[in-house]
Amino acid sequence: MHASIDAKRDNETAWKVRLQEWWFRNRALIGYAFIFPWFAGFIIFDAMPFIYNLYLSFTDYQIGTVGTPPWIGIENYTEIFTDDKLFGKSMFNTLYYLGYSVPLRLIFAFSIALILNLRVRGMELYRTLFYVPSVVPLVAATVIFAGFLNTRYGFLNQFLVLIGAAPVRWLSSPDAIKPSLILLSLWGFGAQMIIFLAGLQGIPEDLYEAAAIDGGTGWHRLFYITLPLMTPTIFFNLLIGLIDGFQVFEQVFILIGTHGGPLQAGLVYMLHVYNKAFRDFEFGYAAALSVVLFLIIFVLTVMLVYTSNRWVFYGDAQDDET
């Protein structure tokens, strides 16, 4: 009797030990459990639509296509690069927008972050005030901005006239449409500013103290301490800014409509994709345009990451190498 109870107890203990050992070996499961919701979301809402989109880009999928859309190989891609006049135009407009908006936003956000990193009384209030525009919904911000840009009554032109400058036809001149969109892009600098601010606060104070002892001026501290140590943050914001910039859509859609403004000077790439999908109902073609955009962003991202070794200063990595 006792022997059987002991054996049972031994079995239970062994089972518990095995369970504990298994759990220890597989303790990473708890981590996986935590990331599962994101992973499931990624598979369902990102990866699967991406793969399906890739498939559709090789088909003549149009609205109402019943069953399997007809496979047309690379025909959509051929048309994009040979027949589609608006592909080049929309890509040029997007690159123009990117070329100005990304650096300007980086500089603007970084400058504001530098100011907000100063030790001044009530700084929390200033930080909040500067971040507030970023929490305004994009639609509302764009509508407000449209008012600012009104030629006759808008704040910007009133200001220009006040200082003796000529008013600008922000939304009616083909030459001014892209600058208007670039100006609007500055509105959402808050997110980048917060990231810069976090980066700035991570810079050890003793580096500045050492520079001060060596007679370094404010400019010296900025160019020889702050900027090098902030390059990982600048790199991150640059990358996110580029990816976002390529996909600019909502503000353009609201500000100048699907046509893209006068002479389609504001027809950005995503607006072209939208028109192909929802005006012309050529979903297969729109899918191909999306894939082309993805490839462009992908290649640029890889290039940036590759070249980042030359200009991004990762303190730890440098230490390891030495």
């Binding site: 449209a146 008012g147 009104n150 030629t151 006759r152 036809r169 939304l171 009616s172 006068p262």
Partner: peptide, 11 residues
């Protein structure tokens, strides 16, 4: 000009 018209009817 056309720009005047866009501006006049804006908003």
């Amino acid at each position: 000009g056309i720009e005047n018209m866009t501006d006049f009817f804006q908003d």
